[in-house]
Design a binder for these strands. Structure first.
Length: 572
RNA sequence: GCGAGCGUAGUGUAGCGGUUAUCACCCGGCGUUGCCAACGCCGGAACCCGGGUUCAAAUCCCGGCGCUCGCACCA
C-alpha cells in the first residue's frame, strides 16, 4: 500500500526537476553556489505558498475564537533563556581525537552520571576524563574539549559595541505567549481562545539534508490555544467519526504499531490523553485533506516520554508519507503552563494569568488583627511598619494575648491593647491561574513538499514516456484558469483577452493566457503546473459566444456560454 | 562535522588533456496544421567557484561551495 515514491526513486528526481524548471522551488543563492538548507519559492511556488498559508489561516480563524498576530523574528536573549531554548540549545559535543567522530557529550555520559544535562563544559570534560569514556566508534578515550552545539543564529541588536545579544527565533510560539495580555484583553478574559502566527523560523542545522525537509530558514505556522485545565470543554470530537485515522501510540517498551481509531474513541479510551489535543488532531487532519494531502499517507505518532521536548506533557506528531518516508509535518503538544510560568518567573509579571470564577461564591468570614497605629507607632518607631504588615496577615481567631512575633530575628511581644480584632466578611468569586496551552505547530515547507508529491501524477499518452499532471486542489494551485485561443487569428485571441479581463474582475482568481504552439502542448503545460481548468476559444465562439471548459484530471470538455463560464468561475 | 561519489544550457545528458563542447526535451520568432507535448525553417541558452600542473584543462591536482549516500546531529 505504501508505495508512493520509493517504488520509483527517479520519480522524486523528476519532481525536483519539474519544480526547478517551472519555478516552484529551487535552491537559494544558486548564482553564488547555493547554501545548504536555504530554498527559494519561485513564481509559481510563491503563489502556492501563499495559498497554503491563506487556507491554513482561514481554517483556524473561522473557528471564531482565534486571532492572528505577528511578532519579530529577532528575539532578545533573555526571552529564549526563559523559554528554555538557550539551555536546551546549548548542548555540548565532544570530538574524538583519534577518529574525529562527534557525539553529544551528555549522551556519552549516560550511565556514568545522573544528570549530565545539567553540567557545564568543564564539568563534562572532567567526567569524560574521570570515567575514561570510550569513543563509541573507535573505542579509544581521547577527547578534545567539548564545544557548545548552539543551533540558533545569534546576532546583536544595535550597531554600537554595547548591543544586546539576540537570536533569530527558533519558533514563533514565544510571540503568542508574550502577547498573551493583549490577546486576553481582546477576548475580554474568556477562555478558551487562541492566537496564530505564520512566519519564518531559524535553526542553524549542523548538516541539513533531504531538500525541503530540513531547512535552516523555514516557514512555520503555529497556534497557541489557551485553556483552563480545570474546565471541561465540549469539543465536537465525533466530527470525523466515520474516518478511522492511523495512530501510532507511544508503545513504551513494545514494538511500534499502527492502529486505526476514530479520534472520538482514541480520546475515550485514553490513547489520546488530552481532549483538546484530540480536537486539534481532528481539525488538523481535516486541514490536511483540504490542502490535498492523501489521507492514506497521514498518521499521528505519539512522542515517547524521553523524546518529548522540554516543554511538552503530551505530544502527537502528524506524519506524512512521501519519498523521505514518514516525515513529521505537524506537532500537536500540550505544553501545560510551562511557557507562561517561565516568563512570569523571569519578568515577575502578573499579566500572564487568567481569571477563573468559582462555581459558587465563597463567603469568607475571618478575624484580622488591625494594629492601633497610635500605640504601635510610638512604641516601635522605625520597626512599626514591618510589625503592622506582619500583624495584618495573622488569623486573629487563633490568638491569645500576649504573643510573640519574630521580626528580623528579634522577638517582639504583642499585647492586647496594641491591636483591634476585627471581623471581616469577604466574598471570593474566583481566582487567578496560569492557563495551559495546546500548541499545534506546522512546518509549512514540509507540508508544501508533500502536497506536491501527492499531487504529482505521471501517466502516459501514446508516444510519451511521461505525461505529468500536478493534481493540486482548487484554490491551492498557483493558477486557477488558463485561457487558450485555438489559434491566434480571426479575432480568437482578442476574444480570449476579453474573457480574461472579465475573469480578472472576479476576486481571488488567477488566470493566465497562452497562445503559442499547438493546443495539445498548451494543455500539457497547464496540466504540468496544476491548472485545474482550461478555457478554449474556438471558431464556434465567434458564432454563438460559447467556449469549452476542460477539466485537468478527466481531460473532459464541456461547452458553455461565456455567462455560464463566469458564473462557474465566481462559484469555483 | 567525517568518509565516499558527483557538479556541463531552463531540464535531462554526451565528451574525461587539443572539438566551433554532443544530443534530446525546452524557450522565442515566422510559416503550416487546427482540440490533447504535430511539422518545417531560423534563433536562444552551459563546462560550480578559486588556485595549480601543462604549449594546451570541462577533462589532471589542491582548496572552497553545492548535491547524493553512509556515520554523527535533528532540542
Amino acid at each position: 500500500m505504501l508505495k508512493l515514491m520509493d517504488a520509483d526513486d527517479n520519480k522524486s528526481k523528476r519532481l525536483v526537476s519539474l519544480m526547478k524548471k517551472r519555478g516552484f522551488i529551487q535552491p537559494a543563492f544558486e548564482l553564488y553556489g547555493g547554501v545548504a538548507g536555504l530554498y527559494d519559492y519561485g513564481p509559481l511556488g510563491g503563489r502556492l505558498r501563499r495559498n497554503v498559508i491563506s487556507k491554513w489561516l482561514n481554517h483556524w480563524i473561522s473557528l471564531g475564537n482565534i486571532v492572528e498576530i505577528d511578532s519579530p523574528t529577532i528575539t532578545p536573549e533573555p526571552v529564549l533563556k526563559a523559554s528554555g531554548h538557550i539551555g536546551a540549545f546549548n548542548d555540548y559535543a565532544s570530538e574524538c581525537k583519534s577518529c574525529n567522530s562527534i557525539f553529544r557529550t551528555d549522551h556519552l555520559l549516560e550511565g556514568y552520571h545522573n544528570n549530565p544535562d545539567a553540567l557545564d563544559n568543564i564539568a563534562l570534560d572532567n567526567e569524560l576524563l574521570k570515567n575514561k569514556i570510550p569513543c563509541p566508534s573507535c573505542n579509544k578515550s581521547e577527547w578534545l574539549p567539548s564545544e557548545p552545539l548552539n543551533l540558533m543564529f545569534s546576532t546583536i541588536i544595535g550597531a554600537n559595541k554595547g548591543g544586546r545579544k539576540a537570536f533569530m527565533r527558533p519558533e514563533t510560539a514565544q510571540g503568542m505567549f508574550l502577547q498573551f495580555p493583549s490577546i486576553y484583553r481582546h477576548f475580554r478574559g474568556k477562555l478558551p481562545f487562541g492566537a496564530v502566527q505564520v512566519g519564518k523560523g531559524y535553526r542553524n542545522e549542523i548538516s541539513p539534508r533531504q531538500g525541503m525537509i530540513r531547512l535552516r530558514e523555514f516557514n512555520m505556522a503555529e497556534l497557541e490555544y489557551f485553556i483552563d485545565p480545570e474546565k471541561d470543554i465540549n469539543y465536537n470530537l465525533d466530527l470525523w467519526d466515520d474516518v478511522q485515522i492511523k495512530l501510532v501510540p507511544d508503545p513504551g517498551k513494545d514494538e511500534l504499531t499502527e492502529k486505526r481509531y476514530t479520534i472520538y474513541n482514541a480520546v475515550k479510551e485514553g490513547v489520546v490523553r488530552d481532549q483538546t489535543v484530540g480536537w486539534f488532531m481532528i481539525k488538523t487532519f481535516e486541514l490536511m485533506l483540504e490542502l490535498g494531502i492523501n489521507n492514506e499517507y497521514i498518521r499521528f505518532r505519539q512522542h515517547e516520554q524521553d523524546e518529548m521536548a522540554h516543554y511538552a506533557t503530551d505530544c502527537w506528531d502528524l506524519e506524512i508519507y512521501g519519498s523521505y518516508g514518514w516525515i513529521e509535518c505537524v506537532g500537536i503538544a500540550n505544553r501545560g503552563c510551562y511557557d507562561l510560568k517561565a516568563h512570569q518567573n523571569v519578568t515577575k509579571s502578573n499579566e500572564l494569568k487568567a481569571w477563573r470564577d468559582f462555581e459558587n461564591e465563597l463567603e469568607i468570614e475571618k478575624y484580622v488583627c488591625s494594629p492601633i497605629q497610635s500605640i504601635v507607632g510610638p512604641r516601635f518607631k522605625e520597626k512599626s511598619k514591618l510589625i503592622s504588615d506582619h500583624l495584618e496577615k495573622l488569623d486573629a481567631s487563633k490568638i491569645n494575648f500576649p504573643f510573640i512575633i519574630n521580626i528580623g530575628g528579634e522577638e517582639i511581644s504583642i499585647e492586647e491593647n496594641m491591636v483591634e480584632i476585627k471581623k471581616v466578611n469577604s466574598i471570593e468569586r474566583g481566582e487567578w491561574f496560569t492557563p495551559h496551552v495546546v500548541e499545534p505547530a506546522f512546518g509549512i515547507d514540509r507540508i508544501i513538499w508533500h502536497i506536491l508529491e501527492h499531487s504529482f501524477t505521471e501517466t502516459s499518452k501514446e508516444n510519451d514516456d511521461y505525461y505529468t499532471i500536478l493534481k493540486l486542489r482548487n484554490k491551492i494551485c498557483p493558477i486557477d484558469f488558463s485561457v487558450y485561443p485555438l489559434f491566434e487569428k480571426d479575432g480568437l485571441d482578442k476574444i480570449a483577452l476579453k474573457i480574461i479581463d472579465s475573469i480578472r474582475e472576479i476576486d481571488g482568481i488567477n488566470v493566465n493566457y497562452d497562445g503559442t504552439k499547438s493546443i495539445g502542448r498548451r494543455y500539457a503545460r497547464g496540466d504540468e503546473i496544476g491548472v485545474p481548468y482550461a478555457i478554449t476559444i474556438d471558431h464556434q465562439t465567434i458564432d454563438d459566444n460559447t467556449v469549452t471548459l476542460r477539466d485537468r484530471d478527466s481531460q473532459e470538455q464541456k461547452r458553455m456560454s461565456i455567462e455560464e463560464l463566469l458564473l462557474f468561475i465566481s462559484k469555483y
